[in-house]
Design a binder for these strands. Structure first.
Length: 422
RNA sequence: GGAGAGGUGGCAGAGCCUGGCUGAAUGCGCCGCACUCGAAAUGCGGUUUACUCCUAGAGUAACGGGGGUUCGAAUCCCUCCCUCUCCGCCA
């Protein structure tokens, strides 16, 4: 949620930002509504002040045993007027808030302007493209041959997009999750969280999935719960409606969760294997930080996510999203993309975003500054650290050998108890 | 699923029966000052948030959400949501 004050003081900035995100919003309409709202509030305040004064007078008269019927009679009329104005004012405020809920966050000034993914900027590349003296297979072929997963049976059980990992595939999945959690906890001081996988409506609103993207989520009708599309939802809501102490910041959380996405509208895209799924596993990093630190924290967050890929020795690149490709809630975002030699393409395995105070406003997540004891919204950030399916794709395809054996990178040897999968 | 209790400030917890001087006692925490070489302890003072207005300053709102009764609601009534306890069922 953006601050309504900004609409008043700097409407052009808002307009430019929303435009850069490729959306259209009727800003004048909101400004007009806000003006109307404030006029009503001023009027209301005056009437209420009068009511309070007269009320006190009535109380005084009654205590003194005097007759207060004249004042009471006059108040009856005023009270009705107040009530009707309150109703009207409430409606206007609701209308404003409803509109505000659908307005995206603005891109940070450093974000390159652009329309879509083709305007994204490659910031850096790490490692070397693996070379093969044979034609590398894709993960589907490799995994099927080694019986690491079974998509047909997964589809039989739950439908397409629900992977069934088997044997060493299941173990590798578990090991990767453990490895990533351990790295973030031990090296960067993240607090490990195991969150609920279903959340209430309010929680999904904080992070921006609701109300705009309801159709992307799985929902249970009877209990009105939403299956989380990312651990970002429950973890960011840990501090909803709280006032943190500045000395508590920054707070770093890392959480594993299964992620559930309906992927409505993306049928036919990346349908093969593990590239796009309805259910997948992800380790998510979430930060609550002071506003003045958030852009520095975004850089370190990205580096922390990258460290996983580096330790696994995978070739990747960091892409800075252009304004038009940014998600609804993000002000700035880096994607990490792994090179998959079998697929012959870059696969997004992480998005590291700074939401500034956008989510904090929605979730009312604040902190008290030490210097002046004032409260202010925190900045929230999160990044995948990282998602497993595409990581597994790149891992299998990168470390394959001609006979189909997978030579595991050294950091996984102890976790797996073996050095290769064959 | 059955029965009951409860939702008040950063936290704990009064107030609700008996509506008005209660934005809310008290304690803890926090901030400042004093004492001290320093700290602890102690003492004194301060400490909700949001909004509106032409600033100073003033005003308004908020005691889970919404509605009602009333001149006036944290307090009375209705309704929804949430939390907890006991029983049942289940991992």
């Amino acid at each position: 949620m953006l601050s309504i004050t900004k609409f008043r003081t700097d409407p052009d900035l808002i307009a430019a930002g929303i435009l850069a995100k490729g959306e259209t919003v009727n800003i004048d309409e909101i400004i007009k509504l806000d003006e109307k709202y404030r006029n009503q509030v001023t009027e209301l305040n005056a009437m209420r002040a009068e009511r309070n004064q007269t009320s006190e007078q009535i109380a005084r008269q009654k205590r003194a045993g005097e007759d207060a019927s004249v004042a009471i009679k006059a108040m009856r009329e005023l009270s009705d007027k107040i009530k009707s104005t309150e109703l009207e004012t409430g409606d206007i405020l609701t209308e404003i808030n409803n509109k505000m809920e659908y307005i995206p966050n603005l891109p940070h000034k450093s974000v390159p302007r652009g329309q879509d993914a083709t305007d994204n900027v490659i910031v850096r590349e790490w490692g070397q493209e693996p070379e093969f003296d044979f034609k590398p297979l894709n993960h589907l072929q490799l995994g099927t041959d080694l019986e690491l997963f079974d998509f047909n049976r997964g589809a039989k059980i739950s439908g397409s997009g629900f992977p069934l990992y088997t044997g060493l595939g299941a173990k590798l999945e578990r090991v990767l999750i453990n490895f990533m959690l351990d790295q973030h906890v031990e090296n960067y001081g993240f607090l490990e969280i195991f969150p609920p996988f279903m959340t209430r409506r309010d929680s999904s609103r904080t992070t921006g999935q609701l109300p705009k993207f309801a159709e992307d989520m799985y929902h249970t009708d009877v209990d009105d719960l939403f299956l989380i599309p990312t651990a970002e939802v429950p973890v960011t809501n840990i501090h909803r409606d709280e006032i943190l102490s500045e000395t508590d910041l920054p707070k770093y959380y890392v959480a594993y969760s299964a992620c559930f996405r309906r992927e409505a509208g993306s049928y036919g895209k990346d349908t093969r294997g593990l590239l796009r799924l309805h259910q997948f596993n992800k380790v998510e990093l979430v930060k609550f930080v002071r506003p003045e630190d958030s852009y520095q924290e975004l850089e370190s967050l990205t580096a922390q996510a990258e460290s996983i890929l580096q330790k696994l020795g995978l070739h990747y690149r960091v892409v800075e999203l252009c304004s038009g490709d940014l998600s609804f809630s993000a002000a700035k975002c880096y994607d990490l993309e792994l090179w998959a030699p079998g697929e012959q393409k870059w696969l997004e395995v992480s998005s590291c975003s700074n939401f500034e105070d956008f989510q904090a406003r929605r979730g009312n997540i604040r902190y008290r500054r030490t210097a002046d004891r004032k409260v202010d919204f925190v900045h929230t950030l999160n990044g995948s650290g990282v998602a497993t399916p595409r990581l597994l794709v790149a891992l299998l395809e990168t470390y394959q050998t001609e006979d189909g054996t997978i030579i595991l990178p050294p950091v996984l040897h102890e976790y797996m108890g073996i050095r290769e999968i064959k």
